[in-house]
Design a protein around this nucleic acid. Sequence first.
DNA 1: AAATTTCGCGCG
DNA 2: AAAGCGCGCGAAATTT
Length: 579
Amino acid sequence: MHLVLSADDTGATSTPVPDDGDDGTPQRARRGRPVDLVRDGARSARWTWGDTNAWYPELLAAGTRVERAHDLRLARAVLRRSALTAATPYARAPRGPWDALALVTAGANSPSAPLPEGLFDLADAARPARDASSALDPVRELRAQLEAVAAAAGPDAPGRLRLLLAAESAGALVAAEMHHAGLPWRADVHDAILSGVLGPRPRPGERPARMEELAHAVRQALDAPPTLNPDSHPDLLRAMEYAGVGARSLRKGELERLDHPVVAPLLEYKAMQRLLTANGWAWLDAWVRDGRFRTEWVVGGVVTGRWATSGGGALQLPRQVRRAVVADLGWRLVVADAAQLEPRVLAGLARDERMADAGRGVDLYAGIVASGAVASREHAKVGMLGAMYGGTTGDSAAVLPRLARAFPAAIALVERAAGAGERGEVVTTRLGRSSPPPDDAWRAAQQGAYAAGDEPAQGEASAARARSQARAWGRFTRNFVVQGTAAEWALCWLASIRRRLWELGAADDAGSAPEPFAGRPHLVFFLHDEVIVHAPAALADAAAEAVRDAAAERAAALRRLPRRLPAERRVVDDYAQAK
DNA sequence: AAATTTCGCGCG
DNA sequence: AAAGCGCGCGAAATTT
């Protein structure tokens, strides 16, 4: 049973909408405060709303968790684009107010959107209004979505899409819950890391003393004036050219290959500048409050279905500062990742039995070496990455033919996806998320490539450009099927972890505050193929087992995906201890 | 002065 | 000459 929440000026309404599994017992619509509606509703209800971010945070604040949800905005984004529903009236209808809602919400945290005054108001300000507009009828939208799913074309297409939508919505719940709980963060530990590397915190607008020294050393090595700003790329490049360093760019990889006295101090300066600007004291002030780091998790924020985040650079926390992620007193962290998720997903997607065999052990790449396909683990790794990303140079391209002979099914799958992209076609993940079509400029370039050219030379140039763009789009679609299907696997994993952790219950009665996770293990971090659970010490081992069991659980629609995908997990006190 | 682009680097 | 995928973010440069 779906219970659809809608809001108007005077309150909220929950409207039952039956689905396949219902026994037909009639239910009535109810009115009231959202939190009361949810508490009084059936526990097995699938709470359905326009946008999880518009409803769930206040429920969590009141101490109320929901078991299942259906996020109409996220579901719509999938169904409007999926190749499996492309023929349905739902997907063929012109854009409507629900699509506009998707845009507003998706863009709420983008740089173009006006930012609120305090960073900490971001979450609230970005929270979309409830679907109060009469143009947005959530009951009607839900019915349309259920119809589109039922009409999806292809083997088990409705089942796959149902799983995808359920996983996406469960992800939305997890995202709201992780924002609510926050990632445990010890500001004092972080500050000690910064002081250890950079020295004492400088006054605003000044460089740490150690960086000032390095800047001086850089100027000396280049025989440059004191006005040279090492943060200015053009200035620095000019000075380096003048000194005969021979650098074409300031990239770390290139600088490391040069033999010049400026390289060492410059690299050290750049590393410190990175730490200072990305995760320095200003970051700490802006993003850590009351021992928690809170980012905005953006479910489905990446075209492939991966999540994005907004605020604090949560998906790029450098190893350098992970020591500051420390469990509360009496609590532990369970840190787990799905080992070599993407190549294993590829093996499953392609039903490549030989690659699946190679992945029986903990290390897929070692298994590939053992199969005799390539000589070294490094070759296996760069070869597989190249196959999944479309690499055409270096070792990666060199070992590709060997991989193609050893694992023809897997390699053929990514080659087919690349070919489809080069032709401008759409590709689709295991559960039915489809890639966006290339834009008009891309199509125009492909058309123009054959029609163009008053000047033969110009025609050739534009043809070359068009081919290059075609190959680039092919690399995108090649990777889309793998990255996107891996993201689906991870979403199902996350949903299963969430359910299993809840079933573990609470370690003790942790007070009367309306806190849904008091005494309970709960998710606090998710990074593509990696999770962190914050758990009372007494439940930490059980939580780790839950994480493992969730990885071994495969929904029917994912059955071709890896049978045994090792989820490596550790119970630790801080994030840095985890690998 | 504000918005946009470029470069570089962190993460998977 | 182009160059393996997907991101977010900050500083400086550049454009409006």
